[in-house]
Amino acid sequence: MAGNFWLSSHFQQWLFDRQDLIRERQEDYQVLTEEEYQKVMIFFANVMQAIGEPLKMKQQVIATATIYFKRFYIRNSLSSVDPLLMAPTCLFLASKVDEFGVQSNNRFIEVCRNVVKTKFGYAFQQEFQYRMPNIFECEFYLLEMMDCCLIVFHPYRPLVQFCQELGTSLDKKDQHQQDLILQTAWKTINDTLRTDICLLYPPYLVALACMQVACIILGKDFKQWFAELSVDIDKCVEVVKLILNLYDMWKTFDEKKEIPALLAKIPKPKSSPR
């Protein structure tokens, strides 16, 4: 549903403020710091990206899955469902919503196994143990916890529109800059999926912030154009800051070294009630 974001379940039910997130994650914040939690989220976003790519899933499907994953763990602690089961389940469901659908269940599990083994072996002692029945079961819980809100709005479409608008305001000789900004900002949007930004801000604002970050990276100055937009510049600056914070953190984040210890801190789901 690409209709009206302001009437969507995304806007009405799935945008939070920072305090909401802190409160909802209380249980996890007992065992992980905020930064550690974010690192775990980054790690599983990477897992989803790595599974989605060989399955030729579109970036938008992977983005949707990443948001499903975050939504589930807002409502539930990381120990309620093994994130390694939830990550592929999110991809599986998102691929159906975005109408690609996984081509073959066997291949899907095979790719999960391979990716976990070859790319993330450092993080997991065991092989990927889940099979389709586990995915199916988990999928029901995911759908339930998301209150059946499956349509997610992404910043990609507003980004394209903003870039076109920017393009029309440019001189002919500067037209190519529009494409450069689009490409850079597109990648920045992918990076925002490694943060809470998509839970905190509407997609159009994220798109603008990513354009600003792109301008910083490319050393361009379109202050005038941004100023003429009727948007909350302060909010936009908040998003830019969060993106820059992520880049700062990335500089020192050594996944291979840190992730095993972080995962070890998360209590494992117990199959029978305690």
Partner: peptide, 14 residues
């Protein structure tokens, strides 16, 4: 199938 990956308490609670 055996239900793995899902916490027992979580299942009871939900």
């Amino acid at each position: 199938h055996s239900s793995i990956g899902l916490d027992g308490d979580f299942k009871v609670k939900t």
